[in-house]
């Protein structure tokens, strides 16, 4: 028995609009989660290197707690566990505005923030300590030293691993289908259910993820070159 491909299922009926909806939702949830992850990652990654032990400990707790529990569990936690703890008005708003989307976004963002934190921390720790001392010696406060010297250098150094982590985030957004966020994977499964065309639907989904990841990687490579620190990249490349 031979499987007969029927690619037209992808644009006949509602499939096309489902795929597009799915793509947009994936982009939306990933972009928002990425912003959250970047903010949490930079903040906690930086705090893990500051001269104050209590702040270091708090940041370490965040990282270890969130990255050592599976993302799937966090999805359920943010969807089922958190809303009942919120004030009634917020709950009402959430359930009228796609609670599953916001739960999924927080789950992704907070989980990947913890992973991004490790990337940022290793970037900061690869900067010689003398850069921090030089910042202090000219009178910058610790906050200014991080904002003006340490982080701008660290962020340029970590573009490759951060890109990797961002692609993981994008791919992991598919886990949100477990709390019925209608993202790309959710929609390909819906097409599969309606058309019984598993291979076609999955191929479409796969290709879209592939194109997204390749484009993001290309953009990040350009950014890396654009903002490269003269001398530093050459040394990394040579080493």
């Amino acid at each position: 028995m031979r499987y007969e491909f029927n690619w037209s299922v992808l644009w006949s009926g509602q499939s096309g609009s489902w795929l597009l909806q799915g793509l947009l939702t994936t982009l939306e949830i990933s972009a928002l989660a990425w912003l959250l992850a970047a903010a949490l990652g930079i903040l906690s990654g930086a705090l893990r290197t500051v001269p104050w032990p209590p702040l270091r400990a708090a940041a370490a707790f965040y990282v270890e707690f969130f990255r050592n529990v599976p993302l799937l569990v966090w999805m359920f936690f943010w969807y089922f566990g958190v809303p009942p703890l919120l004030p009634g008005a917020v709950q009402d708003w959430l359930f009228n505005h796609g609670a599953e989307f916001w739960a999924g976004m927080f789950a992704l963002g907070v989980y990947h923030g913890a992973r991004m934190s490790e990337v940022i921390r290793s970037g900061i720790q690869s900067i010689p300590r003398t850069q921090f001392e030089a910042s202090q010696a000219i009178g910058l406060s610790v906050w200014q030293a991080y904002r003006l010297v340490i982080l701008p250098i660290a962020i340029r150094l970590i573009v490759p691993p951060a890109t990797n982590e961002s692609l993981n985030l994008l791919k992991n957004s598919s886990v949100a289908l477990t709390i019925s966020v209608a993202e790309l994977t959710f929609q390909t499964r819906q097409i599969e259910t309606y058309t019984a065309r598993a291979i076609e639907a999955l191929t479409a989904g796969t290709l879209i993820y592939l194109v997204l990841c390749v484009s993001i990687a290309a953009v990040m490579t350009r950014l890396e070159r654009r903002f490269a620190i003269p001398g530093l990249i050459a040394r990394v490349g040579a080493g």
Binding site: P128, T130, Q131, E133, A134, P230, G231
Partner: peptide
């Protein structure tokens, strides 16, 4: 400093 420690960026 001995190692200059200019900000490379």
């Amino acid at each position: 400093f001995q190692s200059f420690n200019l900000f490379p960026h």
